[in-house]
Computed example of a mutant assay.
Amino acid sequence: MKKLFLLLLLALIATIVTACSETTSTSTDNKMDGKSEQQASNEGEKKEKKPQPFEPLTPSKDAKPLKETMSDEELAKMPVVEAHGEDRTRNTPVGQTLIEGKTDKTEGLLKNYRLVAYYGQPNSTKMGILGEMEPDALMAKLKEQTQAYSDADPSHPAIPTIELITTIAQRDPGPNGLYYHMTSEEDIDEYAKLAKENNALLMLDVQLGRDTALHQVQLLEKWLKLPYVHVAIDTEFHVDEGQTPGVDLGNVDGSEIQEAVEYVSEFVEENDLPDKIILVHQFTDHAVTNKHKIKPTDNVEVALNFDGYGDYATKMSLYRKFVRDEAVQYGGFKIFYNKDEPVLTPSEVLQLDPNPAIINYQ
């Protein structure tokens, strides 16, 4: 009898333990499922980025697709002058701005749009068109030039962009000993307001002097928090100890540019901003070294901009050398109204391989 009682008691205890174990397991599973759902929700929130505040200029009703305005040879081959005696086969199909073989993991502008920028400093007539015109007249001319690109390639409507020099290299070391001074906050604020009022973009250009690219970009934090503000780096004005900007042609190492790229990328996430662009100007072979170290991120698009002036054959061949053959992600091309011979038309610019995603005018 005692033996039967003990067996029944053990069976009852086993049933209770099993039930508790199942309850605990179910509760834990439910908690784990809830955590997974929350994590998935958070990940979804991270991927959803703020929209870009801008308004591209709508192509005219009679604008034709770029491919319809070009001959079969132009579609298959780059211009003779760009090839400079080498193979003319295109790397990147006409109309594609992302360089073939490269990726863009951002939700940035350069995938679907083209930037047309006016470059300069408002207090200098020698540094670009921004110093040659009053703000309202400047915007009117910029929009006219931008419209020409929207019409030349309707698949990439163009966005008017102001490229404002914000740190200016100088021959005097100045109080900080770094051979640069900043454009006044009042001037930067004025052009930030001008861009916003015109649904345009503002690109803040840094000339470095003896400072680092990272620190110069950090100086712009106040304006980088604006969703329509981007960054340009003028590499030729970055000089070493014993050198002087404007006397010695400078350079920036790709690893230093990458520090700025990663900083801006983190800044975008921390401040819940739309993805940004970093434009890197290059004038000579020496101006940007170790380009392979420049890596676009999930939050930052990078464009290499050929920044030279002169005859169109030289400019096109150097665009091939600096942008196409040493590709990072996107290409940019600068035009000098007063120095180029001749000034290329939008249709001529868009024959380049790859098609420039950014065209800036000085």
Rank of each mutant, 00 (worst) to 15 (best):
M1E: 10
L7V: 08
L10Y: 12
I13G: 05
V17F: 01
S21W: 15
S25E: 13
T26C: 11
D29L: 15
M32P: 00
M32G: 00
M32I: 15
Q38R: 14
Q39F: 14
Q39L: 14
S41R: 07
G44S: 10
E45I: 10
L57W: 11
T58E: 12
A63T: 09
L75N: 15
A83D: 07
A83L: 03
T89E: 08
N91C: 01
P93Y: 05
V94K: 14
Q96G: 04
L98G: 00
T103S: 15
K105V: 10
N112K: 14
L115H: 05
P122V: 07
N123S: 15
S124Y: 12
P135L: 03
S150R: 02
P160K: 08
I162T: 08
E163A: 13
Q170A: 03
L178C: 07
S184Q: 03
E185S: 09
A195D: 07
Q207I: 13
R210Q: 15
H215Q: 14
L220K: 05
K222E: 10
W223F: 05
W223C: 12
A232R: 02
I233K: 03
E236F: 08
F237M: 08
D240T: 15
T244G: 09
V247G: 02
G250Y: 01
E256F: 09
E259V: 10
N271V: 11
D272A: 13
K276R: 13
I277E: 06
D285F: 12
H292S: 13
P296I: 13
N299I: 02
E301R: 10
L304P: 01
G310Y: 01
K315R: 09
S317L: 06
Y319K: 01
Y319I: 04
V323P: 03
E326C: 01
V328I: 15
G332H: 06
K339F: 08
D340L: 02
P342H: 08
L350A: 04
Q351T: 15
L352D: 09
D353G: 05
